[in-house]
């Protein structure tokens, strides 16, 4: 049953609003693929009512654990931050379609913005294990929010940070780092997750250079399983049908998505 109360074994504050939570669920860990997400019930009360969608950040199959990385932005994530170790996390999943873990080519670029790095870390681990050459770009406001740094170092991939204040790595936007410091001819496939504005720039770059890739999108969710039609989004203005982010996504091919201001959710 894709529903579990998993024992929380680690719950750390990584920066002023970013947390990492690891819980035990061997069955969920075994079934989880990079890019999939969980629906988390942050407490047993009616407020907040709905589950919160959170990506699978990392999986330890030998330990049977799943790790989440999340940013406190409102009531739900705030309540989540108060969960303590040795308590049980009420989770549904894994849900949705994950990333393509057999991309064409060898040189793979992952670009995360803010907490958008979350779904890319387990992807980096899986691609690295398949001997792909993986480079990860992560944009954050400053050094203290480059929270995935240690995991990425442990996985052993190239890591290029960009910070708004220049406290680590490239000073400026991660998309400027992409445009100025990387050669498109050295990239076979791109994955990205982050604010819509960032993904829009990355998608434009991928399309201009004819690099295939995938994006992970967000929308407000209720059921998480395709039943309520609450998370619908029109990928292109010419599309005559909406997709359900929870079931058809959250991962889509970069070329299939048109980024616009309409209906976007910002991180």
């Amino acid at each position: 049953m894709p529903l579990e109360k998993g024992l929380v074994i680690v719950h750390n504050r990584l920066s002023h609003d970013m947390y990492q939570l690891e819980f035990i669920s061997p069955e969920m860990a075994a079934r989880s693929k990079p890019g999939q997400f969980l629906q988390v019930k942050v407490n047993a009360l009616n407020t907040p009512l709905l589950r919160r969608p959170i990506s699978i950040y990392d999986v330890d199959k030998s330990l049977g654990s799943i790790t989440l990385l999340y940013k406190v932005v409102g009531q739900g994530t705030e309540a989540m931050s108060r969960i303590r170790t040795k308590e049980y996390l009420d989770v549904m999943g894994p849900l949705g379609q994950g990333f393509n873990t057999s991309p064409p080519g060898r040189k793979i670029l992952l670009i995360g913005g803010g907490v958008g790095i979350a779904p890319l870390v387990y992807l980096a681990r899986v691609l690295k294990a398949k001997n792909y050459q993986v480079k990860v770009l992560h944009g954050a406001d400053s050094r203290r929010n480059l929270v995935a740094f240690e995991k990425l170092r442990e996985i052993g991939v190239d890591f290029l940070p960009a910070t708004d204040d220049g406290s680590a790595g490239f000073k400026g936007l991660v998309t400027d780092l992409l445009a100025t410091k990387l050669k498109a001819s050295q990239i076979d496939y791109i994955y990205t997750c982050g604010p819509d504005a960032m993904m829009k720039t990355v998608a434009a770059y991928a399309n201009a250079n004819q690099i295939p890739g995938q994006v992970s999108l967000e929308e407000h969710m209720a059921c998480g399983v395709g039943a309520c039609l609450g998370c619908a989004r029109q990928l292109k203005s010419s599309d005559r049908e909406m997709v359900k982010i929870c079931k058809d996504g959250p991962v889509f091919d970069i070329q299939a998505v048109e980024f616009s201001v309409q209906g976007e959710v910002s991180r």
Partner: peptide, 23 residues
């Protein structure tokens, strides 16, 4: 029917609002 434009749902105190638009 294609339904309404997003966002279609939002949580409210002990409840939620939906405007799926009968997709």
């Amino acid at each position: 029917r294609i339904g309404n434009l997003p966002p279609r749902i939002i949580e409210t105190p002990s409840g939620m609002l939906n405007a799926i638009g009968l997709e």
